[in-house]
Simulated assay, not measured.
Amino acid sequence: MPARGSLPLSKTRRRAFRLGLQSWRQTPLPKTPSSLVPKTFSLRVRLEETGDMYRLPSCHADTTVRELKEELDLIAGIPFHFQRLLYLDQGILMDDSTLGFHDFVPGGIISMCLWHQDGWQELALAAMEGDASASCLAKTPVGRTALHVAAAMGRLYCIDLLLEHGASFFEKDLKGESPLDVARRLKRF
């Protein structure tokens, strides 16, 4: 029995109604006028495995997800190729897409998860918990060492410990930045 005040829908009308809803779902939301989005804005990133929050202060609409991951590589200490970034319900963000493409809201929160393959998640979590079994001379694919990360975070005790175990302040990443350069750029010293 149809609800009070409604008429029964024929198969044709039900199908048309469903199609109308589907086309409504596929209609893109209006874009925020570029004049309302600040040129430089900050984003927050939550590491889902631990709940840790990281702030990225100098983002732009043309910043790529890959560039965002490379910055998180330093700030969070998690190599970019272990990161999966998600924003709202858009799924995993592709490295070559830009923040403007995804309509990031200034001050919004991005979720970061770690890939579960080959034990990398366990390794990254052990490093975050202070497990000293990892080599301080290992490099990420962009040439960063544990000393780059410690300098980016301003962790003096870690820096001293890494230097005692053979890390070098002169080791440069693929962008030509030494740990000291990174610390200066992020105003840690």
Rank of each mutant, 00 (worst) to 15 (best):
L163D: 05
A61H: 08
P57Y: 05
V45T: 12
G91K: 04
C136A: 10
D181M: 08
L163G: 02
G108P: 04
G143M: 05
I109N: 11
P30G: 08
D160T: 09
L162H: 10
K172G: 00
L86W: 02
D118A: 15
D89V: 02
L163I: 05
A138Y: 06
A3Q: 14
A16D: 13
R188I: 03
K31C: 07
I159G: 00
R155D: 15
G130L: 04
P28W: 08
E49I: 06
A61I: 08
R144W: 01
A151N: 05
D131S: 12
M1R: 14
L123F: 10
I109W: 08
L36T: 13
R155I: 00
R4I: 14
A127P: 00
C136V: 12
P38N: 07
R144L: 03
P141Y: 03
C136H: 07
K69L: 03
R15F: 11
T50I: 11
E171C: 10
G51M: 09
L162V: 01
W24Y: 09
K39Y: 04
C113N: 13
D118C: 13
Y54F: 15
L29N: 08
E177G: 00
G100W: 00
G143I: 03
K11V: 10
K11R: 13
T32C: 14
D173W: 03
T27S: 13
R25E: 11
L72A: 09
L156T: 12
I92D: 09
W24V: 10
G176P: 05
P141R: 05
K39A: 14
V142E: 12
H60D: 00
S168Y: 03
L85Y: 02
P179K: 03
D160V: 08
L156I: 10
D52V: 05
K39T: 12
G119Y: 07
L43T: 11
V45R: 03
P38Q: 10
K11D: 14
